[in-house]
């Protein structure tokens, strides 16, 4: 195993101190401007754009700004989680892209662990439940069980347009979230920015 250790060291530090902005995607990002387009998910109503409903399909005239701050923080994080936050992701009915994007925040470029954001392997040890995907009958009960298994206080994070509004494929699995992270799927810049904001960190 030591040869791997040396090989790792040789590569140097790969984690980006300041995330490389040039790789921020156009979609999803904050959209701006005006559009009379008949949005397939009714994300444009009376000229107002709803970031949670938007599936970032790029069909309307709203322009992507590459601003990753498409999230809502609905309350204050309990003090005890400021130092470390353990997240248990739960897939209710995703296409797989939300799962992949959430996992990517632990990749070397972003390394969410350095911000004391961790993955929990069980809801019993989790501070936050991250819900993704549309409502599905059988996973609804699994979600209730996971919430029951979590110790108090618990946080629910809504992740992606399917979880927040049903997106284009169905309906939302839950109605209330402490944090709402928009995108289809949310990208790593948005995810880390949202969680750090909630934790009271900077980014």
């Amino acid at each position: 195993m030591s040869q791997w250790f040396l090989k790792g060291i040789k590569k140097g530090i790969k984690t980006e101190k300041n995330f490389d902005d040039k790789f921020k995607p156009d979609y999803p990002s904050r959209l701006e401007g005006k559009s009379g387009y008949n949005c397939p998910v009714n994300a444009i109503k009376n000229g107002e754009w709803d970031e949670n409903k938007c599936i970032y399909c790029g069909k309307c005239d709203l322009k992507p700004t590459k601003d990753e701050k498409i999230y809502k923080i609905n309350d204050k994080l309990p003090k005890m989680f400021k130092k470390s936050l353990y997240i248990y992701p739960l897939d209710s009915g995703t296409c797989g892209a939300c799962n992949a994007e959430f996992n990517s925040i632990f990749y070397p470029q972003y390394d969410a662990n350095r911000f004391n954001i961790f993955l929990s392997n069980t809801p019993r040890h989790a501070d936050a439940l991250l819900l993704m995907g549309v409502y599905t009958e059988k996973m609804h009960d699994v979600m209730i069980d996971a919430l029951d298994a979590m110790p108090d206080p618990k946080i629910i994070i809504g992740f992606g347009s399917c979880a927040l509004s049903g997106g284009i494929l169905g309906s939302s699995i839950n109605e209330k979230f402490n944090v709402e992270i928009a995108g289809c799927p949310p990208d790593p810049y948005t995810i880390i920015s949202a969680i750090l904001k909630y934790k009271g960190g900077v980014k």
């Binding site: 995607p25 979609y27 599936i55 970032y56 399909c57 990517s104 990749y107 972003y110 799927p185 990208d187």
Partner: peptide
């Protein structure tokens, strides 16, 4: 992640949506 960034640069979306 590098491949996702390439996809995003070429297609404006990391998963080819749109």
């Amino acid at each position: 992640e590098d491949v996702s960034r390439i996809i995003s640069t070429v297609f404006k979306h990391r998963y080819f949506f749109g």
